[in-house]
Design a protein around this nucleic acid. Structure first.
Lengths: 335, 335
DNA sequence: TCCGTGTGTTGAAGCGTTTCGACAACATTA
DNA sequence: TAATGTTGTCGAAACGCTTCAACACACGGA
């Protein structure tokens, strides 16, 4: 293995000088710098990560804590992962994978052994067992999602309340007066999942604000129950001309269910989804995006900032973005 | 930070003794061992990963090189990842994520800095640019899939030839004499993708062996072209009573296409898929499993074996397993 | 009694970095 | 001219662990 001493000898300088060239923590004359750089290139030198970690107490690795439990939408997850890895690499950091099944136990181990400098935690629940642990750890962490007690933590999330409201506003602007909401499976609400409840709340409040009648139903993820939920919505509110859907698994059956009940999209019923843009694009649905990449990138950047001692806002909420597509397109001229 | 010296002092022994208790590389008396263990617990000691890596030249981390490019089936990928992480943890190793977009460059960096002890490489192509690099690296690697030049490498793969053959045998045993094969999109074959070609080869050879007429078509992943492919198969071979499908994206449209062409599954046409078991279960298709977990586990175990200096077979082929389901179920009594 | 043998423990020397204080050499100011 | 910065480089001391050679001790056999 090529060591820093080899490089130093080859370049005719002291090892510390090589180190300073590498880290840039002291000024080095241009001549020396290029000389050292050349030696590094020639010898194919790579600093030993362990030695570096030991001496600097910085591993240049962040832990990515992934759920991997049933019910997570994998395409979204992977986009997040990609974004996190890419962003981390931009700051010369690597990513260590910690799966959630290792639990708090795993976090403690990884943190205790100084293997990582910080944590990126995905899929946080409202009262997550890991949250108290994260708070008392030496390493900083950034959470995707918002636990109930977010005090002292850094969180990144889509502003789901605003997302719910944005759907209503869009539809209201198009002239709709009776709007339905098709939500996640009811277990999700029972579990006290933050984003689902926040979306509902935002939707409801916006509807009230705009003087619009709203009706909401949960939906399971098979065709039969989607159909049942939609039927129930239409029965409750026969004048309904628009539907907001916050349920990725149900999306595929919405159009079919409506058609089965004699309504066409978008002529009889407009549809707005809250889902990854890719999915909406594929089905040509107007949608509020679930910006996985953006969340991943921002979370990683916040973590890096904290690692460098910069203060960060405790909560970063991404504003929702709506993309108009065919499922609400030609509604401007309605009564 | 609690160091090994703190533990040693607390337990009244030398630091080296603590180290030996931890690693088990020398015999330690039961009394001393429990005493040390107790101190470790009490003080909450975790060995510093960097220091350990430096001293032992073992990082206890394996790199997982993931594709993350379009076209990979994510559910399968994630199952593989989970299996790899879980298995690695069983051997006290962690997993560093390296995405393929970092390319050979990334491999070199990670390897050079001694950050990892070995590589787990997924989604290997027939002539992969990383293969020559892997061969000359100090750290061992295990590949999922088989490059053309596998010499000097350790590979794990499903025996796709046998999988193709297994489908034919199953159908032949049920009495089918005219069988169709619906493959991946044609680009996949153009790309020289190993598993696709091997499956085809196995299918064809088995059909010849059993004296069965076979017809094959590629299929793109939208409904229209699946329908077109199926129609083309039926036109070429009107007596066809069974179909082998090696195309995950097409699976959802098979039954529909057949119905559109006036054939019911399984009464008129039996269907066997080659895909993850979960998918097949969901659609009630007889299938040859794509054992993601098993591949991940085996690959990791092979890597660990190599790390410990044990010799390993250059190629591990998992035998295909067929699960009978409704799509071929009641065919035993056919003419 | 002395010698080998085996078992359990220790001290010290690394492992390859970073970083701190020191120190020349030179530039700036009083 | 002397005092005071500045800039670029160096030497050496950490960092926390593993591991090797060495040692103390108890044991059974000659």
């Amino acid at each position: 293995m090529v060591t820093i001493a080899d490089v130093a000898r080859h370049a005719g300088v002291a090892p510390s000088t090589v180190s300073y060239v590498l880290t840039g923590k002291r000024s080095i004359s241009p001549q020396t710098r290029t000389k050292v750089r050349e030696s590094i290139r020639l010898l194919g030198y790579h600093p030993h990560a362990g030695a570096r970690a030991l001496a600097s107490s910085r591993a240049n690795v962040v832990a990515l804590v992934l759920p991997l439990r049933p019910g997570v939408h994998l395409p979204v997850l992977m986009r997040f992962v990609t974004a996190a890895v890419t962003t981390a690499r931009r700051y010369d950091m690597d990513v260590l994978l910690v799966t959630a099944d290792q639990g708090a136990q795993g976090l403690r181990r990884v943190a205790g052994s100084a293997q990582v400098d910080g944590f990126l935690v995905m899929d946080v629940e409202l009262d997550d067992e890991r949250v108290p642990l994260l708070r008392q750890m030496a390493q900083p962490s950034v959470l995707i999602g918002r636990p109930a007690a977010a005090k002292g933590l850094t969180c990144v999330d889509l502003d789901f309340e605003a997302a719910g409201a944005r759907c209503v506003d869009h539809l209201a602007d198009l002239g709709h007066r009776y709007i339905g909401f098709l939500g996640a499976p009811s277990v999700v609400y029972q579990r006290n999942t933050g984003y689902a409840q926040r979306t509902m709340a935002g939707f409801g409040a916006a509807a009230m604000r705009r003087g619009i009648a709203s009706t909401a139903m949960p939906a399971e993820d098979d065709y039969e129950s989607v159909l049942a939920s939609v039927r129930s919505l239409l029965r409750t509110q026969p004048a309904m001309t628009a539907l907001v859907v916050h349920n990725e698994a149900a999306l595929g059956w919405i159009a079919g269910s409506l058609r089965a009940l004699g309504r066409r999209v978008p002529d009889d019923v407009a549809v707005v989804a809250i889902c990854p843009d890719e999915l909406a694009e594929q089905m040509q649905l107007t949608s509020v995006q679930l910006p996985a990449e953006e969340l991943g990138r921002q979370a990683t950047e916040l973590l890096v900032a904290r690692l460098n001692g910069h203060p960060t806002a405790p909560l970063t909420l991404l504003p929702p973005k709506l993309s108009g597509r065919a499922s609400t397109a030609p509604r401007l001229r309605r009564a």
